Amino acid sequence: MSEKLFYQNPYLTKFTSSLVKQEQDERGNWIAVLRETAFYPTGGGQPHDTGTLNGVKVIGVEEEDGEVRHFLDERIEGAEISIHGEIDWDRRFDHMQQHTGQHILSAAFDNLFGYKTVGFHLGREESTIDLETTGLEESQILEAEKIANRIVLENRPIETRWVTKEEATLLPLRKQLSVNEDIRLVIIPDFDYNGCGGTHPSSTGQAGLIKVLGTEKEKKKTRVTFTAGERSFEQFSKKQQVVAKLTPLLNAPQEGLEKAVLRLLEAKEQLEKQLEEVKDTLIEFEAKELRAKSKKDEYTVAAVFKERPIQEMQKLARLVVNDEIESRVIFVSETDRKLQIVCAKGKVAEGNMKELLGKTLLKINGRGGGSEFFAQGGGEAVVGGQKLLEEMFENI
């Protein structure tokens, strides 16, 4: 079993070791196992470290059957001499900040409201904790945030301690242990006692600002999205850039942006309603014009359109057959190498629109449906719209 140096010193980023074995897996990926390593493998909600072994990139680290397996982007040459490893410190420290932020935030929700953390995920840009509660009040989030950042500002020491099961039972652990031996605790004195194998800084101050970004319900849990440290600074910077751009565009100060956006949305809704009314009026005129221009059959209105939304064709067809109960309608739209079809008939008109459409769809590998009076569908443009229309007119 490889000795896990990452447990002993998370600040260890350069080390020398020896190779136990180097092999390829079933997918052809090279894997190296060392006598001892400082690379952290994926586990406990925390992603793996990256870095290099003798200059070869380490792209993944997993612990399996007591071995820490380093996934490489190529074979290590000359590995029989010695292995020089180097951890990507920026990635490692970012994970240390996020994981410590999780401990502090989870403890804050637990200590204040008794909400237990039942899940943790450290993502690339944001992290999440799942709380055992069906909902959170905004005031609770703000209170937990306040306590969490106070613990950060107090710069309390973060201790790691190996204990026996008996010793662990004497401490106020935040959650039940998942192992009975080789128990490693991460402790923030008088605030949080938790079993954990992850990497953490030596003090809470190094976790940096902890900020809750949002919450959402997940079945019987509440998922809390947050950032810590450098990520919180990056989030603030991005949001500040957005605010700086919106302020002159909306002609409103930062505190007035919400009202300005709401006014815009209301105006947009009114304009869309007015536009829809105008379009309906135009479609009514268009329906009368199409009926008047129908030449092939005084009872059938047929037309081919370009890029016409099927919803508009449906409205147009209904207007025609409602005004003329003996009329029939066949509309075809040529849209992005596809054909869309709407066919309808009035209450006393002859023909079955569902059957007519069904025969047509077979020719264009299409799908659709409807009733005897109204049907719609679409398929491939294997023929032109005009030709398809003429064939339908003959079959009606």
Rank of each mutant, 00 (worst) to 15 (best):
V348C: 02
E324W: 04
V342W: 06
E324P: 01
A349F: 03
G351Q: 05
R328T: 04
A344F: 13
K347G: 05
Q340N: 12
T360I: 06
V329N: 01
K347I: 04
V329Y: 02
K363Q: 08
M353S: 06
D336M: 13
L361F: 10
G366I: 12
F331N: 03
E324H: 13
K345Y: 09
K345D: 07
R328W: 04
M353F: 04
R328S: 14
T335G: 01
D323G: 15
N352Y: 02
I325K: 14
E324G: 01
K359P: 00
G346A: 09
K347V: 05
K359N: 03
F331L: 14
Q340K: 14
G366K: 12
G366P: 11
I364P: 08
T335M: 12
T360K: 04
K359G: 00
K345W: 07
K347N: 09
A349D: 07
C343G: 11
K354D: 00
I364Q: 13
E324K: 06
L339D: 09
S333V: 11
K347P: 02
T360Y: 05
L356Y: 01
V348E: 13
I364D: 12
D336G: 11
E324F: 12
G358Y: 00
I341H: 06
I341P: 06
K354V: 01
R328C: 03
D323W: 14
F331I: 08
E334M: 11
I341E: 05
V329K: 02
L339N: 08
K347D: 12
L361Y: 08
F331H: 08
G358S: 09
G366C: 12
N365W: 05
C343T: 15
V342F: 11
R337N: 15
K345M: 10
N352G: 01
L361Q: 08
S327E: 01
N365A: 07
Q340T: 13
V342M: 11
A349L: 07
G346V: 04
L339Q: 11
I364V: 14
K354P: 00
V342D: 07
K354H: 04
V329P: 01
R337K: 15
L357Y: 00
L361T: 09
M353C: 14
R337Q: 15
G351M: 09
K363P: 00
Q340A: 09
K338R: 15
M353W: 03
F331D: 04
S327G: 07
